[in-house]
Simulated scan of single mutants.
Amino acid sequence: MSRPIPVRNIWILFLYAADLVQFRDKYERDVEDARDLPDLIGRLLAHVVEDRMRKNLSRGYRSKSAVLQRVRGRIDMLATETAQLMDRGQVACRFEEHVMDTPRNRLVRTALERLAARVDNIETAHRCRKLAADFARFGVSGMRPSRAQLATDQIGRNESADRMMVALARMVFDGSIPTEIEGNALQPGDETTEHLIRRLFERAVGNAWRIQLEPEGWHVAQGRRISWPVSAASSGLHAILPGMQTDIELNHPQTGRRVVIDTKFTRILTSSNYRSEVLRSGYLYQMYSYLRTQEQESDAPSLAAKGILLHPQTGGYVNEMMMVQGHEISFRTIDLTASASNFERQLRLLDAN
């Protein structure tokens, strides 16, 4: 990959990957004005946080114990009797305290602080710094929460604004702030950028298929593990046998159709000693294994399952197919450098037929 990827297309990937496509048109001005990806994330996170503050940040509950003059929550009888607190008109209580120091708010504060230190745009950095200070005044800790802590802070179905806020904050810590890149495009040669786009691309494609195909009766599964049909093996084989996991699998129960999609963040074509352009054989063998090893007479869709190797590409377009032992295998690309409207059209018009 050599051509620069427009920041707007990274934004579209993010929206699909985070399942937040409903916000596509809400932040047009921020997307247009952003100089680079860190500036875009900073602008958007500041915008969302400012909006949340106007409507009150979400709160959580924290367990607390205290000696009080009146009962609050549950009485800790053992502590009360042991210290003879009632003789002094006091009681030991355990209760839940309503606080803003939640894992999601801590994540956002630490993300704002990181952006303030790394974003080149002075105005964006100032907004992030000010908002981080506001979080501190609200009692939100500056310690980044662990994955386990974030997992306990479930975001409700109706908290879409918080989902956007947390998704942007996560993006800050996903190795997605390549500060050395300027302008309104990202250079794919940068390792940090490729890591980010790879993660976004895989999730965005899966969600794009789901949005388009679930209303038509398709079931969309991502990251399903499949097994080798081993009939006999030596004692040490299973310790070294690699597993198999599909990126995306589509099933249509009514018609018995199945499609296995593998997304690869590499160029779909390479070169050999004899040809300047040739499909990558390793990926082809992998897809062939996915399809053929899962064939079972009792599972009719497995006998004619279709495979799609889907690659991002910077410029150009590939859409080829072949039939191999009853299985159609397609080779397709999505142009990451296309115009924003064309790029999104490619995502949404992926065809499972």
Rank of each mutant, 00 (worst) to 15 (best):
A111Q: 00
V91S: 05
T246Y: 12
T102E: 04
R258A: 12
F331Q: 03
R54P: 02
P301T: 04
S289F: 11
M100H: 13
D76Q: 11
H195V: 13
L78Q: 12
M287W: 06
N342T: 10
C93M: 06
S302G: 06
G316S: 09
S276R: 12
E328I: 07
L200E: 01
H311N: 13
Q296H: 15
I122P: 14
S302N: 03
S146Q: 10
H47A: 14
A83S: 14
S235G: 14
K306F: 04
R109G: 06
F138V: 08
A111R: 03
R224W: 08
I240L: 15
E32C: 07
D33H: 12
L15A: 03
Q286Y: 06
Q154D: 09
G315R: 09
E202A: 07
S272Q: 00
E320F: 13
L250R: 06
L131H: 05
L78A: 15
R24Y: 11
I308S: 02
P6H: 10
R59N: 08
L107M: 06
L37T: 03
F135R: 07
G42Y: 01
F331C: 04
L37A: 05
P178D: 09
L13T: 01
S231C: 08
G42P: 02
K264T: 03
P103T: 03
M86P: 00
D25P: 00
S176M: 04
D153W: 07
S58P: 06
